[in-house]
């Protein structure tokens, strides 16, 4: 350090002051150097944890045959739920719940889209899911895709799906599907805002939806 060659001021108080100033300058330089390294390193590696990719990119087919992608949903928050039309309980309960929550939010209820993805392309054709989604009395974007497209979106959202025969004695017979029952809330930039759990109280779910459209 060049400062060390400077003539020393008078008295111990002045010396201490000078040492503090030097320490502060060293800390500042060190900090700047560290930030510089950090920045150049970050450019070459993955983004920071808060911005880890979740959800997209994905591409599915809507009930009307047009494409539904993370890009086509961008700009508006959305609540996305994965299920299948033959699901007799959790799917209608959840979609009915979303329709009700939307109603309770009043004007805010129309500031987000509701997306229903069928993870059962073997049985759910796009027009099947459209007819199903239309029964809930509120606009719902229904979509499905090929096995590969669904595998991709499931991976993006961390959605678990497993086919289970209804009758264990008939493994090739009718089946149901174990599947993730949470509702993922995605903001207008396609980032995860929150998840509504199946068991959660409506008041909590409403707070989360208000936060989503804020």
């Amino acid at each position: 350090m060049p400062d060390i060659e400077q003539p020393q001021p008078n008295g111990p108080a002045a010396v201490r002051k000078l040492l503090w100033v030097m320490a502060a300058i060293a800390a500042l330089l060190g900090g700047l150097l560290y930030l510089g390294l950090e920045k150049s390193g970050a450019e070459k590696t993955a983004p920071v944890a808060g911005a880890l990719p979740f959800g997209g990119p994905f591409e599915l087919t809507r009930a009307d045959g047009t494409a539904l992608t993370d890009a086509s949903l961008a700009g508006r928050p959305y609540a996305i739920f994965f299920g299948f039309t033959r699901c007799p309980d959790v799917c209608p309960t959840t979609l009915a719940r979303l329709a009700l929550l939307r109603k309770k939010l009043g004007a805010d209820g129309h500031k987000f889209d509701i997306v229903f993805v069928s993870v059962d392309p073997e049985r759910d054709r796009p027009n099947d899911i459209g007819a199903y989604a239309d029964m809930f009395g509120t606009p719902i974007i229904a979509a499905t895709g090929t096995d590969a497209q669904l595998a991709r979106i499931r991976k993006g959202f961390g959605v678990y799906v497993k086919k289970v025969p209804i009758d264990a004695a008939k493994p090739d017979g009718d089946y149901t599907m174990d599947h993730t029952a949470g509702i993922f809330l995605m903001d207008g930039q396609g980032r995860l805002s929150s998840i509504i759990d199946y068991h959660e109280a409506d008041a909590t779910a409403l707070d989360k939806l208000r936060m989503l459209v804020r």
Partner: peptide, 17 residues
């Protein structure tokens, strides 16, 4: 017509006869 249980366990819906 069958009798089924339905549970949501660790966020996953499971239905069994």
């Amino acid at each position: 017509v069958q009798i089924h249980t339905m549970r949501v366990e660790a966020g996953v819906m499971k239905m069994r006869q």
